[in-house]
Design a protein around this nucleic acid. Structure first.
Lengths: 239, 239
DNA sequence: GCTTGTGGAAATGTCAGACATTTAATAGAC
DNA sequence: GTCTATTAAATGTCTGACATTTCCACAAGC
């Protein structure tokens, strides 16, 4: 694939990196393909070679590319991607059509992990963690009515789950909160956000909040699992 | 803190990055401290400013530093570190005295996560996954006898757990295998590797292998938890 | 006194060009 | 044919100059 299909003129190395990363995430190149040369990218987007190298450094650090002097730049396969790199989450979030395989993989991870995390949160949550959860839940409730507030609702949804990870008070689990945003943002493009499904989702979230507040580990696990069953339906993974 | 305490003359930007990263991981600077300037680092190690910038780019991407034009380079707190970045795992692995707080955090994560992962592995493992597990286990057995083979034993240990994560056949869980190496390598410096503890460890690992081979989800979960109880003792987290 | 603005110092960020190094392909000698 | 130079092409590195951002000090004006 060539660069011609990409929109011209991103401003700055960061936006160039995002543009190229999203093209890679969208599958515009096959694993093993040779990526365009620095000078070609530089000319195509009318930016300096420096900017290109900075952008490609990010993509390489994220496991998207493999660069070697002399050979060139090769595209790596999905299994090599650093899905837990915060930059990757950022790039995935802005992508309208995320690879269904990725959406399913992230969902499967969350389905197996979040009950455990919610259980830990029930054991370790402090007052401020409860407050974060309550605040996020209140935001979800208040933005549940109107259709035009679905983006706002998704943000509160992300905040709720991120607060759960943070409440586990574990540095590693907390890092994984980055994955939530692309996963939840995918909901916007795949679900109808009908009123009854939103009510159902709210009810299940409320039970997670209650379980954590009551320090009830097993209830938190069960409730988190129920939230994710709802998510699976909204993502179209199960009907 | 200054650079004077660091050994001179690393060769190449990668080694410079490792050196600086390990100094940061070891807590030689406090969060919020200003990190040495590019030119000072450049002069101290007698490398070009380019090399320094490349190294600092890595550390920044890993969440260790925060750089701003005009202000300088600031040291970030542990909660901001990208513990799941493969580079971080590499840097941590070579560190003799990893921060006990980190060791405990990673252990707590593994204790909550690995049973789930082992359960998934019991469900999803293919023939080649079983082979990898068996091969790693055989290596653990053969290197269990001698004291001087403890490094080799640790490598097989890492391979065993990594094979478990891979056997889950989930792209996200698989990425987390990177964390295993620093966690398991910490065992070398903290346990005596006595013969009876090694035998006990082997027995528990064998049960994980058997459970996965038998596709027995709940047994795999239980067995993985038992392995980690043994690990906790060896890490000195519990007695 | 307080605010505001203005200048300079100091740090990181960027650029451009030349050069180094690595890799792969190619042509030639035997 | 096989092995070996040679060459081309790509990324990596160096250097010096310059741009930009931030902070601080100091002074002007209300």
């Amino acid at each position: 694939m060539t660069l011609d299909a990409l929109p011209p003129h991103p401003g700055g190395a960061e936006q160039l990196a995002r543009l190229l990363a999203q093209a890679l995430l969208a599958g515009h190149w096959q694993p093993g393909d040779v990526f365009p040369r620095e000078l070609d990218i530089s000319k195509h987007f009318a930016v300096s070679r420096n900017q290109v190298r900075n952008a490609l450094t990010s993509l390489t650090a994220a496991g998207l590319l493999d660069r070697t002097a002399g050979r060139g730049t090769l595209v790596r396969e999905m299994g090599d991607w650093h899905l837990l790199d915060p930059l990757m989450s950022e790039w995935m979030t802005g992508l309208v059509n995320l690879d269904p395989q990725l959406v399913r993989a992230i969902y499967a991870f969350r389905f197996s992990a979040e009950p455990v995390v919610a259980g830990l949160a029930a054991q370790a949550a402090q007052a401020e963690d409860i407050e974060r959860l309550e605040s996020a839940f209140a935001g979800m409730e208040s933005s549940a009515g109107s259709v035009e507030a679905r983006a706002e609702h998704a943000e509160y949804d992300v905040a709720f789950h991120d607060a759960t990870y943070r409440a586990s008070h574990n540095l590693v689990w907390r890092q994984m909160g980055h994955l939530l945003r692309p996963s939840i943002m995918a909901l916007i493009h795949r679900s109808q956000h009908r009123t009854d499904t939103l009510d159902d989702s709210l009810t299940r979230h409320r039970q997670v909040l209650e379980a954590i507040r009551n320090r009830d580990t097993s209830s938190a696990e069960i409730a988190a699992r129920e939230v994710l069953r709802r998510t699976a339906i909204d993502l179209g993974i199960v009907s």
